[in-house]
Amino acid sequence: MADPLLIFDALLGVALIALAIAVLVVRDRFAMIVLFIIFGLMTALAWVRLSAPDVALAEAAIGTGLAGALMLKTLHHIRAAPAAPVPVSVGVVFANMGFCAMVFVGLAIAFMATSLEAPGLAPQVAQNIDASGVAHPVTAVLLNFRAYDTLMEVVVLLAAIIAVWMIERGIEQAPARHLGEIYRGFARLALPAIVVIGTYLLWVGAYAPGGAFQGGAALAAVGLLLLLSGLYRPQPAHRPIARLGFVLGIAVFASVALLVASGGRLPFEYPPAHAKTLILLIEGVVTISIAVTLAALFHGREPEAIPVSETRA
């Protein structure tokens, strides 16, 4: 244990486990969410240590930032509910604790017995990276070698926003807290910077950590700031534009795949000469779709034609 970085890793691991426990045991629900956000940022740090900067970026932006904002919004909505409705009996808690301990021991034995030196798929990716159109292996996997997964991932996002709009149809939202002038000033300063960061993340994904999902999440933050500061209020007339935003990425992605397939190739088998252009096109529209969808997921309710108070009367 002479290596100071290994000591750092061990401390970070202990801190992560302690934060995970704290998320579950802390009484105050606001503290619970804040602890979860800290936990997510620490996780991102651990993944940087495991040489996975792309995943760390995605976790920090989407898994922590946006998820944290969503949970705080939900907490604001349900704050009237009692914190702990019915306590679980001690016997159930201990039985589950024993069960989970067995799961942990079993998984740990399996993990310790597995070699961490398996070759994996890195050599195949390295061999074919020149034909993929991009220089960054993770982007090559996401947008070329396993593009079908990525298409389905965008479909999952679309399914989520459809479900949220249906679930929230007609329910009254807790009135948003009015944010002061200082906050608006901050939004005006921060917005252009975030737009630049999001676009940069998208562009840099071709040869360095970054890409459509991280860029889309940064751009979704623009939407969140606009919604929170009241600089933008969703109108019913904007619904068609929002819907177009949701499906744009899938439509272009699928059309490119079908177009490539019609040329006698397999779907997603981009011709190497045009691969970079096609990937950039797909990434660009997918980024817009991701940003619009994530911001809409945060807003929740679909902008309705009739004010909710009238329909309920």
Binding site: V55, G63, V141, G211, F213
Partner: peptide, 14 residues
């Protein structure tokens, strides 16, 4: 590092 599991985790996060 192997990029394929990284892409899978990014998919998982979304």
């Amino acid at each position: 590092a192997d990029p394929v599991p990284h892409a899978l985790v990014i998919t998982g996060i979304v």
